[in-house]
Amino acid sequence: MRKLVIILFLFYPILTYAQGWSISYSIGYGTYQLDDIKSLKDAMPDNYGLKVTDWFPDHITHSVSLGYATGHHHFGTNLSYLTTGGRLHRADYSGSYTVDMIMNGYRLGAFYRYYIGTGLSPLSLYLQMSPGMLFSNLKMREDVIVYSESAQENTKLKGAGIYLEPTIGVNYRFTDWLHFSLGGGYEFDFRGKMKLSGQKTQIESKWNGLRLYGGIILFYH
């Protein structure tokens, strides 16, 4: 009985907009342009018969945000985590040679969301604009194991840029304190030159691409 009450409570339509503090988590999927990063394989020496087995595919994103909602407006700050990677590999009876590259992006920015009623309450449409800083790092790890000999070398590139992501989505108000949202946008990255040991490189960490989100928003009134 209690469970039923809860389900009914959850699916009870709420027609009013939330007001108060919010915290949200979204899992998403992104496409990553990362042209400079992906072209690294062309710059890699074609030694030892290394072949690409994995190369910076589109991948899951994670986002959390803290905001304040009032009326149609919802604004705040958000943090996103983007990750992808690649591998060059060669192995035979004598050993293996692995080059793993993991590219992580940390977006820290602000967001502004505007809710538009759809007449299908509790479902509403929203438009969102998110600008902010994008911090990227590329970790390269070479592992060589030949017979009893082994060697490892790590290289790390870091970069910082700015991003702008317009998003459109729908919000479903399940209760006053619990909303579900689905959205999609496109991330535009600017600047973002990466540095190797403090030295600038020509590599830009541009994660440009589509972003799809699905998440929950908790409101605290």
Binding site: R87, A91, Y93
Partner: peptide, 27 residues
């Protein structure tokens, strides 16, 4: 708690490259 959970989430979610290229050669 939320921040810690976020960090753990991010770290746990780091991409892991995959695949291998093994050549069957004669010693």
């Amino acid at each position: 708690f939320i921040l810690l959970a976020t960090i753990v989430l991010f770290v746990a979610c780091e991409y892991e490259p995959s695949g291998n290229n093994f050549l069957d050669l004669t010693p």
